[in-house]
Design a protein around this nucleic acid. Structure first.
Lengths: 134, 134, 134, 134
DNA sequence: GTGGTCTAGACCACC
DNA sequence: GTGGTCTAGACCACA
């Protein structure tokens, strides 16, 4: 799986990395239980600081996406995280803002929904056969 | 229109304010051409520094949401901003990530889409009679 | 001569007015010795404050563009102002910056010069028969 | 590259700084990708507040002249900004006024054009070998 | 170390 | 009255 960092983005590097790993899991590029490169290895590959990769891994571990195994290193969790209340609230707020912005800028509801649907269909097509862990 | 700032949030105050103003416009709480409170007034009302309000106003002005009338102060623009290429790219990336995260956490496509649709319907119901400036 | 003020511009109203009067003179819309509307009249026509018009007139008077006559009111001067040292320095600085900006943005020298030339030709065509006051 | 601020000028400090950086890029004093001093460093060197430098940097970043690399700080962008419609309109208005003023003050077309040309030739001579990024 | 955020208080230009 | 500019000092996130 290819990681692409934009060093000039306003989004922190650790956040970009975290997001790409999550998208990698959704798209099926990373399978449940699959081992991730070591912190050191990945940091070198991407050309970023070791601590930055570590931060991403730890956040993903805290969220339930990754598990750290002493022997096997860092792997994708076998079960995906449950959506807790805080996440749901956050998601609604985020969607509330994004859709308001899009609406004001003249994006039509159908356009917006079709973009969302497109992504979902992608995820389902590639990941469904792995039964989504639930 | 009521502004509610979460001082514990990781989202900067100026960004929270900016988002709420955009949502206010989308929902119709703020009409095209409507005068906004002065930076000093709003800062005092919310209990934040005037420079923070100023930053929000300036970002919204740069984006095309607000205009500064030399005689009347700050007003909502009569014409909403056009979606430029950068915005579209950003939007797709954002939706790509959010939907990936949601998908992994077990949110079903229908649930996700219905939330989006609900917001849009709200905007349209409240704002359509003002013809959306386009 | 038509005055058009942009109340949302970052350029002060009095400066916009001043510039348009100068351009009116250069283009020949305003002739040497021609009477300008009274401060009160112009302010009302444009829909701006009386003091603002007054400021423009005074600046133009100080620069030598206008003369104030107790009986005849404000008129365009019969002789155009001489370019003093301060003006020349200022002009060079301004051109230095504008051309640098244009160059960086990929405007070709020929394009830039042709725009400048176009304006000058306009002025000469319309004003030359009035012998330019010198 | 030497920055010289006129504290008596009516042009804001951040604007003077911005202009000099743009001219520095045009003249080749600042190369594509070159690192700029940190806001704190430059502020101290010039003897102004770091927020003022920050404002200049941010404006230049918004315009596309500078980029902020999360690892290396602020650098000159590898690609110069494209001239958008707003810029072109602005440029024409500015040239329209400046040339009108110059014409009235007796500057001859040839003089005006030769000054413009001189600057451009300077930029080209010093910067062309860096291929201007386009 | 870097830039980003927020606060505070001052002065000024404009209208 | 409005927003714009500048200063000063503090804290934080990021790498």
């Amino acid at each position: 799986m290819i990681i692409k960092i934009d060093f000039e983005s306003e989004i922190p590097i650790y956040e970009q990395l975290k997001r790409q790993i999550i998208q990698g899991i959704a798209k099926g590029d990373l399978s449940k239980g699959e081992e991730l490169p070591s912190v050191r290895q990945l940091a070198e590959d991407i050309g970023i600081n070791l601590h930055t990769v570590n931060k991403s891994y730890n956040l993903l571990k805290d969220e339930g996406y990754l598990v750290v195994d002493r022997r096997k290193g860092t792997r994708v969790s076998d079960t995906m995280p449950e959506p807790n209340e805080k996440y749901i609230d956050n998601l609604k707020e985020e969607i509330g803002y994004i859709s308001a912005d899009a609406y004001c800028k003249g994006i039509r509801k159908e356009e917006f929904l079709s973009v969302c649907e497109k992504y979902f269909n992608d995820f389902i097509a590639n990941g469904e056969d792995e039964s989504n862990g639930r």
